[in-house]
Design a protein around this nucleic acid. Sequence first.
DNA 1: ACACATGGACTACAACTGTAATCAACAAAG
DNA 2: CTTTGTTGATTACAGTTGTAGTCCATGTGT
Lengths: 130, 130
Amino acid sequence: MSKMSDKPEISNAEFEVLDVLWDSHPATSNEVISRLNDKKDWHEKTVKTLLGRLVKKEVLGFEKQQRQYLYYPLIAREDYTKKETASFVSRLFKGKITPMIAGFANQNSLSKQDISELKALIKEWEQNND
Amino acid sequence: MSKMSDKPEISNAEFEVLDVLWDSHPATSNEVISRLNDKKDWHEKTVKTLLGRLVKKEVLGFEKQQRQYLYYPLIAREDYTKKETASFVSRLFKGKITPMIAGFANQNSLSKQDISELKALIKEWEQNND
DNA sequence: ACACATGGACTACAACTGTAATCAACAAAG
DNA sequence: CTTTGTTGATTACAGTTGTAGTCCATGTGT
């Protein structure tokens, strides 16, 4: 036995497409295209290709609605971001988040609000782990 | 004018090579190869190719020592990780670190030590930003 | 019914990647 | 000196990615 859903590699361009579908789904290719138009400047055909590749990779599913397809994500954003974050932090920071945040901090990328959110997060963690 | 050192795209495999050079440099290709042997199972030729590509991308520099080259990084690990982190967090979390850490937290990936380090970090931030 | 528009499927194609093998030049060994 | 090994340089080659274009079947307007 093997080949148990081996992490589908999602490319950068593909991610953008998936991202708008996470925001709201299901959606037709045209909806996806027009939503992407706000940020990216991609040709319609390009987006369709990406949709197709994501389907092939089993990242998206679809359901025919007469002539068109209604696409929707097959994986949850949370699951994806969690895995990606873990592997990112593992690669670049040997798995320790603090150094990463430290990088943010001394780069002035931390706002007062970030700090208070972090504090809240810590407090919550401490309550769940007394 | 333009073309001001446009972020050299470093691939995953290339990153591993760069990583061991960040750990200690300069180093000959053989040193790099043997250090990588501990983690990766790459053919000698593969590593040499990667070294070459990194040189071409101006990520590594070298200096001849008779027959061999002594390679060394041209970019600092800190600079690289900072940029990568910023773009990562920007893409996956709209630039907010807290949601990322929250993902870590509810995945039980935060240790007691992480938490105390985070607290220290916050305290430090607050002192510098009163 | 028929011509045209439209949506997905298939095809294109160069650059980048992972993963090496071959080549050429020089150094080491005999 | 000549053979041999070693080192970087060049070449290989398939798969992925970015970015579309072409084909074919079906829906639409007349």
